[in-house]
Structures are given as structure tokens and as C-alpha cells.
Amino acid sequence: MKNFLRAVSGLLCGLLMFGCRPVEDFGLEKLTKGVSTEADVRAAMGEPAAVWPEGNGARTLEYPKGPEGNRTFMVDVDAGGVLHDWKQVLTPENFATIAPGMTRDEVRRKLGRPRTVANFPLKNEEVWDWRYQASPGEDKFFNVHFDRSSNRVVRVSESEEVHG
């Protein structure tokens, strides 16, 4: 009986651990850099939100894990269709590269699809935001403010997650 209870308890723990697995990373553990193909990436991660052409036939596949997620992965595939690398782009280091004067396409290329887009006609601004993990258990929002006339970044800001 004790062995049966141990087996059941082990199975339950395993299922709970699998159930608690971060959804944002689901699929990456199935991929191997330099070995997996673009078809493997799509089978593991699904269809990308965008495919960005790179020079020499390489491509970057965009995988935002939102709107409530706090990660966006850019997956690099070489010209031969083999997985080269991936990176999570919603980081303070990557946010620091967003500068006034950048276009919407340049921002989208660096950060992926925004979580929300809000228009502020009186300020003549359109604001895009991305949820990101500032520290374990603490999500914040990175905001990019575009001038609606020039379609260029005028400033960036951060905000806290609002509860309730």
C-alpha cells in the first residue's frame, strides 16, 4: 500500500509541476540550437505573430506570449532553415535601445507586438505597452509614446501594474 501511495503521490507531484510550468516558455525545451529546423520551431511554438526577413535569407520569427504574458521571444533561423538562436526581448537592456525618433516598425522589430495600443488625441500621442517581469513576481509595463503626426517615438515611460 505504501508503494502505491508513493507512486500516486509522485504522479500527482509530477502533474502539478507540469501544470505550474510557465506557459511563456512552453515549446523551447523541445528545440536545440543548430539542430532544430524552422518546422520544428513552428511545431513547438506555433505560428509566429510575424516573420522578419534578415539579410542573406535568414529570418526572425516573433512569438509574443501575451496579452497577459510578460515575454516575447525572437527566434532566429538561418538561410538553411536551421534554428540559430532565440532571445527574450522584453528586458530593461532591450528597452534602453528604444530612442526618440525611431519609427513604429523599428520598435515593433525590437520588442514585438505590443500588448495594447492607446490613443490620446489631446496629446497627439499613441502609446504602445508591453508587460514585462521587472523582478520575480513583479510585472511592470514599458510604454512607448509615438507622435501621431510624425509616427515616431517621442519618449518612453514605465508604469506599475494596477490591481483591482
Results as ranks from 00 to 15, higher is better:
Gly27Asn: 08
Lys2Ile: 07
Arg109Ser: 10
Asp78Gly: 10
Val75Ile: 15
Arg155Ser: 08
Arg131Tyr: 14
Asp129Trp: 08
Lys33Trp: 13
Leu11Lys: 04
Glu54Phe: 00
Arg59Pro: 09
Val35Asn: 03
Trp86Ser: 03
Pro67Trp: 13
Arg6Leu: 08
Gly66Asp: 01
Ser159Cys: 04
Asp139Trp: 03
Gly81Trp: 07
Val154Glu: 02
Glu138Val: 15
Thr60Ile: 11
Phe146Cys: 09
Arg71Ser: 09
Leu122Thr: 15
Pro114Phe: 02
Asn56Gly: 01
Arg109Ile: 11
Pro136Val: 13
Val144Ser: 09
His84Cys: 07
Phe4Lys: 12
Met1Pro: 12
Glu126Leu: 01
His145Val: 01
Pro48Ala: 06
Pro53Thr: 01
Gly19Phe: 04
Val162Tyr: 08
Glu160Asp: 10
Ala44Val: 06
Asp25Phe: 10
Val117Gln: 13
Gly137His: 11
Trp52Cys: 02
Leu15Gly: 13
Ser9Val: 04
Val89Ala: 05
Lys110Arg: 14
Arg113Ala: 14
Thr103Cys: 01
Asp40Leu: 03
Lys140Leu: 03
Glu126His: 01
Asp78Pro: 11
Val144Asp: 02
Tyr132Trp: 09
Glu160Phe: 13
Gln133Leu: 12
Ala99Ser: 02
Met1Trp: 07
Phe95Glu: 00
Asp105Tyr: 04
Val82Phe: 14
Phe73Gln: 09
Gly80Asn: 14
